[in-house]
């Protein structure tokens, strides 16, 4: 399987960075090929420009700063988001990545005469979110879990119609212990290994 990990956190020493490392190594150990986008390291500009907005219904070829993201999005079988939840959703950097990279011709198409957009990311069969919340699950439910719904609904409708979504979330990180965080890293590892059906080859299945 081909997995595309979109990672977003300003601090390379953060817990989110550790989550990314664990997810990538688990995917690689399971024999998948992995590509990673690190939005802060790339210096990605999250604000859609006026020009892009005016052209969004008939866009030209993607500009150089997002061309690679578009290629990798169309390449992958699994799309994995790794980010901290801020204000109940994705950080602005990742919100802007969705605003700018989910372009017409890349993620969706509007055929002549159609009233609704058509999915173009039909290559994406797994949609995974790995995130941490400073506050509790209860608070996030009260806030409406907007980050979860952005991926599970707004992005999901652009993917393969049979795409499965996987939500891997840690709550109460602000009050967590090292042991809690270690247990969550192990959970990420297990979930990533189980992401794709077990190999049909018996020897490989036993090893797994």
């Amino acid at each position: 399987m081909k997995a595309y990990v979109v990672y977003c956190h300003p601090d390379p020493d953060s817990f989110t960075a550790a989550l990314r490392d664990r997810a990538v190594s688990a995917l690689e150990n399971a024999g998948h090929s992995v590509r990673v986008a690190d939005l802060y390291a790339d210096g990605f500009d999250p604000a859609m420009s006026r020009q892009e907005r005016l052209e969004h219904k008939a866009p030209p070829a993607p500009p150089p700063d997002i061309a690679r993201y578009c290629t990798d999005l169309q390449w992958c079988d699994a799309l994995v988001f790794v980010y901290p939840t801020w204000w109940s959703g994705q950080p602005a950097m990742l919100t802007g990545w969705l605003d700018r990279v989910l372009r017409r011709g890349v993620a969706w198409e509007l055929p002549d005469g159609a009233s609704r957009i058509e999915a173009r990311l039909t290559n994406v069969r797994r949609l995974v979110t790995i995130t941490s919340h400073g506050s509790s699950k209860l608070i996030n439910l009260l806030e409406g879990e907007t980050g979860r719904k952005v991926v599970g609904r707004a992005v999901r409708v652009l993917c393969n119609r049979f795409a499965r979504t996987t939500w891997i979330a840690m709550y109460n990180v602000d009050r967590s212990t090292d042991a809690d965080r270690e247990a969550f890293l192990d959970r990420v590892d297990r979930k990533m290994h189980a992401l794709w059906p077990a190999p049909t080859n018996r020897a490989a299945a036993r090893k797994w």
Binding site: G89, D99, R175
Partner: peptide, 29 residues
């Protein structure tokens, strides 16, 4: 856009409504 606010507004919430402006952390974080 994509069911939510543009990045520039989301970033405004994140950067302006910080502890001491938008909310405070109590002694239990």
């Amino acid at each position: 856009w994509w069911s939510t606010m543009p990045a520039i507004l989301k970033g405004w919430l994140e950067r302006v409504l910080v502890p001491g402006v938008g909310f405070v952390f109590d002694e239990h974080q």
